[in-house]
């Protein structure tokens, strides 16, 4: 425990880099999907597509926050992971309760079932990682 401590202080190395990799993956997935949908058939389901775009933006900013580390980076990542968790749960519940709200799937529909529920797990891992790498008060 003791010897790993200094390395664990930053969010952008070790397991953090793996987390960033998955965030980048989802940033690419959500961006390409939202971009294509907005470009080709925005009228069909504007809410769903804008939501995908928002999710994409959050993934990108979260990845950057984790990668930058530091005080600001951590705050940014914290905000993004929290937003993400709220978003995936809210959209998951709404998409089950009222499917007509989302005529086309988003990254977050049905708690991210189209993406192996990783969208649901990812923000939890992100928050856990931020907690694990928190600075000691002393």
């Amino acid at each position: 425990m003791v010897e790993t401590r200094p390395a664990r202080r930053t969010t952008n190395t070790g397991p953090g880099r793996l987390l960033i990799a998955v965030y980048l993956l989802f940033a690419i997935a959500a961006t390409s999907r939202a971009g294509l949908q907005i470009a080709t058939r925005f009228d069909e389901a504007p809410v769903a597509y804008l939501l995908s775009a928002l999710a994409a933006l959050i993934y990108i900013v979260a990845a950057v926050g984790l990668a930058r580390a530091g005080h600001t980076g951590r705050r940014v990542a914290l905000a993004c992971c929290s937003l993400e968790l709220v978003g995936v749960i809210a959209v998951g519940v709404l998409s089950l309760a009222d499917p007509e709200l989302f005529p086309d799937e988003t990254v977050w529909s049905q708690f991210g079932s189209g993406y192996g529920y990783i969208p649901l797990v990812l923000p939890v891992l992100g928050l856990f990682w931020l907690w694990r790498t928190r600075r000691d008060p002393a």
Binding site: R17, I20, A21, L24, L25, I28, Q37
Partner: peptide, 20 residues
């Protein structure tokens, strides 16, 4: 939309893994 989204993602994956 989903198909091309997955396709773009797929092609980006090995380079992403490589760089990181």
């Amino acid at each position: 939309g989903a198909f091309f989204g997955y396709l773009v993602t797929l092609v980006c994956m090995p380079p992403l893994a490589w760089v990181l």
